[in-house]
Amino acid sequence: MTSRPLLAEVFVRGLYIVLLVASIWVLLRGHNAPGGGFIGGLLAVAASAAYALTFNATSALQRLPLRPAALAAIGVLLSAASGVPALWSDLPFLTHLWVELPLGIADLPLSTVMVFDFGVYLCVWGALGGYCLGLLRALEEAP
């Protein structure tokens, strides 16, 4: 395919950002409404896949914040680390802690749950995204 789908490229460039923002939103709202790290991660994978299909897998890989394996590994480490603070309070590993951060206007609830869920998000994005993009790129490079 030598001709470039110009319209699609412009559209997907925007769609990529929108999908990523949406994935973060789904991730954050997950605790109280349908969503969460798994679904958010999958949305991010969808964004990467769309980018790879319109442009190519190599540039989609470059748009990832890190190499896929590093992304997934950091995700797992973050999730595991989110369970550590509980140990300091003599609670079982992965017991999630909550604090209310006063912001003047309202209190912002923060929790180790968010770190955990963010780790899940990163791992799903890195692992599944890595799989999809790796497969696509392998075919692109095939003669």
């Binding site: 605790h31 409404a33 969460g36 369970g83 869920d117 692992a127 799989y131």
Partner: peptide, 29 residues
């Protein structure tokens, strides 16, 4: 502190299981 029971189970009640699952994802990659 969560109203989405499914998500609460995934990230809190059964967080260790989830940690194992994403570990599997990582190792598969």
């Amino acid at each position: 502190h969560g109203r989405n029971v499914v998500n609460v189970i995934i990230v809190d009640f059964r967080a260790l299981d989830t940690l194992g699952e994403i570990g599997v994802l990582l190792f598969a990659l």
